[in-house]
Design a protein around this nucleic acid. Structure first.
Length: 618
DNA sequence: CGTCTCACG
DNA sequence: ACGTACGTGAGACGG
């Protein structure tokens, strides 16, 4: 047994590190005592990295348990008796505290200790969830942040050590890169152990302080309960993962590499060494006699996709417009950059994250954005190209299954109608009308064109996002004066929207620049961008429609089919024979009333690959 | 590490 | 008083 101790915020703490099997006796007695008294115990795991599934055995190195003053570290790496003891502790302790538990440690202990995540998530209070309910912003955005260090500094002791940062300097001293440090640092390294122990002490001390803060702020308890449940459902999706068509992906990888190189060679012929260097591309284009007009924020010539597409005489579908002679360099740069990005960001990432069973497990962060929208990383499967089926074709439903995608119908607009109580919009929704056609008819009259509908759609989003006529004009391609006229008309047709936006801003100002959604989520505003409150409320409420739908699916026993949340859509893998029935059941879970407005969804049943929902034939 | 670009909802 | 497009993740470049 090894001892550590210290003082934090004037309060001493003690740490014990189990070294030999005989040390497990005292550990088990300590755990039994905590279980008996019902004291909350924080749990944490130290691993070789973040790839819970792709790493393989030996991934989990250390497990820690601790109260506000006492901590234990168990060297999982040293053998099955240590695995057994840690698993037993997780099972027997009735009240656990974790930090990002469902997002990481629940999956780690599920996969590497054999303790099902359902079992631990049911009794964990997650300090990261609580912290985000206080303030969802990242540090960059002016928030406290949600990792242990800034939270500890804010709530416990401004002198609390930065354990993550401290470890990184140890890695440096050991001549290890950060990525390999967590895997290679000796298990008995004192800094590694001390910081591992401190993490559970800090997490334990954080919990009551966050609970008190939430109470003081009047955040409803049921909101925390709801978010813990959503986080657990997301963890179940991460554990399930998706089948990767490895053979197809390898082919894709080499095809995309070939394209990227082929077009890069064309660009090289015009003096562009790296197509991703905007500076080189701009210089070469101007050398060919092209005139660039737009500049970036920092004053460099802007050569983004829109600029290059115009020079290459291509429309949004990459078809010639015949409005000018196509610039061959612009087209080569576009094609090389696209192929290169699709290979590295998608094909490479798929293969880098595949587990031994041929699956990828994209990581879902269930309350990532400042509006609590979810994000998915490693790989970022929420952002796969949708205009082309080729990338999504690589991801498959399980053997004998098909992919089902079920989307909410115009959910943000319906949420706006519900929150702002927009009478005519609510009526149109109740009558089953197409909302954008309905608006186009009101704004442009009975003889509205498809173009008018597009402008109406642009204005609808512009209103939700807080945009102006120039942005809507740019997005829709409609002339600015037409958009301006239409926006004035829109305000007359739906007067409640502008009025509500004004009220929401005033409410937020009166609440120290924090908007409160109908579910009770706190939405901090930037002082100079208070107009964003409309978007925050709508986006956040739409996100809670997804959360509510996931809970309905949990109640209906549908979670085992779920694979991904994509903002207004869920992707599921369902046995072929049950597709119709399960698709209907999922859509039912996504159908409910929001303040008198029906939220609805439609299932789309595909074949085995995700790409089949975008036109692929497998 | 900040900036730019580009993929999504 | 006016007007402001929202939220993400990831890779490449260049200092």
């Amino acid at each position: 047994m090894r001892h550590f101790s210290g003082v934090l915020n004037g309060q001493p703490w003690d740490g014990l590190v189990v070294e030999r099997p005989e040390d497990l006796g005292p550990f088990r007695r300590w755990v039994a005592d905590q279980a008996q008294s019902g004291t909350p115990v924080a749990a944490d795991t130290e691993t070789c990295g973040l790839k819970i599934y792709a790493w393989g055995p030996g991934f989990l190195r250390l497990a820690q348990f601790g109260t506000e003053t006492e901590a234990w570290a168990i060297p999982i790496e040293h053998g099955p008796e240590f695995v057994e003891a840690a698993a037993w502790a997780l099972r027997i302790l009735p009240d656990l505290t974790g930090h990002n538990w469902a997002g990481f440690d629940a999956l780690v202990s599920d996969e590497h200790l054999g303790v099902p995540l359902e079992e631990t998530c049911a009794k964990v209070t997650d300090t990261q969830i609580l912290a985000k309910l206080v303030d969802p912003r990242q540090q960059m955005e002016g928030g406290i942040g949600s990792s242990l260090k800034p939270l500890s500094a804010h709530y416990i002791d401004s002198a609390a050590p930065d354990t993550q940062d401290g470890l990184k300097s140890v890695f440096k001293a050991l001549k290890l890169r950060i990525a390999e440090g967590f895997a290679k640092i000796p298990l008995d390294h004192p800094t590694y152990l001390e910081y591992g122990l401190l993490d559970v002490i800090l997490t334990s001390r954080l919990r009551p302080r966050l609970e008190r803060t939430l109470e003081k702020l009047g955040v409803p308890k049921r909101l925390a309960v709801y978010e813990h449940r959503v986080a657990r459902i997301c963890a179940q999706m991460v554990r399930a993962g998706m089948v990767l068509d490895e053979e197809y992906t390898l082919g894709l990888q080499s095809d995309l590499s070939y394209d990227a190189e082929r077009f890069a060679e064309v660009a090289a012929g015009y003096g562009v060494d790296s197509v991703n260097s905007g500076r080189q591309v701009a210089a070469a284009l101007m050398g060919m006699g092209e005139t660039l007009t737009e500049k970036t924020a920092s004053g460099a010539w802007k050569v983004d996709k829109a600029v290059l597409m115009a020079l290459a005489d291509l429309d949004r579908d990459w078809k010639p417009i015949h409005s000018r002679t196509a610039n061959p360099l612009a087209e080569a740069v576009l094609r090389s950059k696209r192929a290169g990005k699709w290979r590295s960001a998608y094909a490479d990432n798929f293969l880098d994250n595949v587990d031994a069973g041929g699956r990828i497990h994209p990581n879902v962060q269930s309350m990532q954005a400042r509006t609590f929208r979810m994000s998915v990383t490693n790989p970022a499967v929420q952002t796969l190209p949708s205009s082309d089926k080729m990338i999504r074709r690589a991801l498959l439903a399980d053997e004998g299954h098909v992919m089902i995608s079920t989307d909410f119908q115009a959910v943000e607009l319906r949420v706006l109608a519900a929150l702002a109580d927009v009478k005519r919009m609510k009526l149109a929704i109740a009558n089953g009308e197409d909302l954008h056609s309905f608006t186009a008819r009101l704004v442009f009259g009975e003889g509205f064109t498809e173009k008018d509908r597009k402008v109406s759609k642009g204005i609808a989003f512009g209103k939700v996002y807080g945009g102006g006529a120039s942005t809507v004009s740019r997005q829709t391609g409609a002339p600015i004066d037409a958009v301006q006229r239409a926006m004035v008309k829109y305000d007359q047709v739906y007067p409640e929207v502008g009025r509500a936006a004004k009220d929401w801003r005033i409410e937020a100002f009166n609440n120290r620049m924090v908007g409160i959604s109908i579910t009770g989520h706190r939405l901090p505003l930037d002082r100079d961008r208070s107009y964003a409150i409309t978007n925050y409320l709508v986006q956040s409420t739409a996100r809670d429609c997804l959360g509510q739908a996931l809970i309905h699916m949990d109640e209906a026993g549908l979670v085992p089919f779920l694979r991904l949340p994509i903002h207004d859509e869920v992707l599921a893998s369902v046995p072929k024979g049950d597709a119709e029935e399960v698709g209907r059941a999922i859509a039912r879970c996504m159908t409910f009333d929001l303040k008198g407005v029906q939220i609805e969804a439609t299932p789309d049943i595909g074949k085995r690959s995700w790409g089949s929902l975008y036109g692929a034939d497998y």
